[in-house]
C-alpha cells in the first residue's frame, strides 16, 4: 500500500475533497411529531418490551413459589383477615369509616370519577405546566391510595392493629 499512489484504490481515482454537506446530507432530520412506520420501529421495541416482561415473569416463577395455606375452614377465621393486596386500601378505609362509605361509596366514586375524568377536565392543553390542578389532584389521590394500600398490606396485624412489618409480617400475596 505504502509504495502505491494513495489516491488510486482498486482502479478508482480520488478526484478531490470538497468542503460541505455529504452527498446524502439532504435527508430530512426527523422531528418528534413526524410519523414513522410502525413496522419495524415500534414493533421491534414492543418485541423487546414483551421479552423483558416475559423474562421477569419466568424468573419470578423460578424464584418464588405461589403460596398455598391450609385447606379452607369456614369455622377457623384467621387473625388478621386480609383482602387481596389491591383491595388493602379499601380494607384500611373500612377500619376507619362506615362500610357504606368505605365499601360502597368510595370505590364507586373512584371508578365513576376515573371514567368521567376526560369529560370533567376539558382543558385541551397537554403540557404539564398548564395542567397544575389536574396533575396535583391526581397525584394526591395516587399517593394517598398507595399509602393506604401499603398500610393495609404490610402495617396491619392481629385485630387490624398497627404492626411494623420488620417485626411482624402479615402481608399476603
Amino acid at each position: 500500500m505504502s509504495d502505491q499512489d494513495p489516491t488510486i484504490v482498486a482502479g478508482q481515482r480520488l478526484l478531490g475533497v470538497v468542503p460541505g454537506k455529504p452527498a446524502v446530507g439532504d435527508r430530512k432530520e426527523l422531528k418528534e411529531e413526524d410519523p414513522v412506520m410502525v413496522w419495524p420501529h415500534l414493533l421491534v421495541r414492543h418485541a423487546v418490551a414483551a421479552l423483558v416482561v416475559l423474562f421477569i415473569v419466568l424468573l419470578l416463577g423460578l424464584a418464588f413459589d405461589a403460596p398455598l395455606r391450609a385447606i379452607a375452614d369456614p369455622t377457623n377465621t384467621p387473625n388478621p383477615e386480609k383482602a387481596p393486596w389491591y383491595f388493602a386500601a379499601l380494607q384500611e378505609l373500612l377500619s376507619h369509616f362506615h362500610p357504606l362509605v368505605a365499601g360502597v361509596l368510595v370505590p364507586t366514586a373512584i371508578i365513576l370519577g376515573l371514567a368521567a375524568l376526560p369529560y370533567i377536565d376539558r382543558n385541551p392543553v397537554i403540557s404539564p405546566r398548564a395542567r397544575r390542578v389536574a396533575r396535583t389532584t391526581f397525584t394526591v389521590f395516587l399517593v394517598v391510595w398507595i399509602a393506604l394500600t401499603l398500610v393495609g398490606f404490610a402495617f396491619r396485624g392481629a385485630n387490624w392493629g398497627w404492626v411494623w412489618p420488620w417485626q411482624e409480617w402479615h402481608g399476603e400475596l
Partner: peptide, 29 residues
C-alpha cells in the same frame, strides 16, 4: 379477574380474602 382467581385454590388465604372482599357488597343500599 384477579379477585375471582384468588378464591380458586380454596385454602385459608383464598377463603377469607374473598369473605372480606365480598362482605362489602352487602352494604350496598
Amino acid at each position: 379477574l384477579s379477585f375471582t382467581g384468588y378464591l380458586l385454590p380454596w385454602d385459608q388465604l383464598a377463603y377469607w380474602a374473598v369473605t372480606v372482599g365480598t362482605s362489602m357488597a352487602g352494604y350496598v343500599p
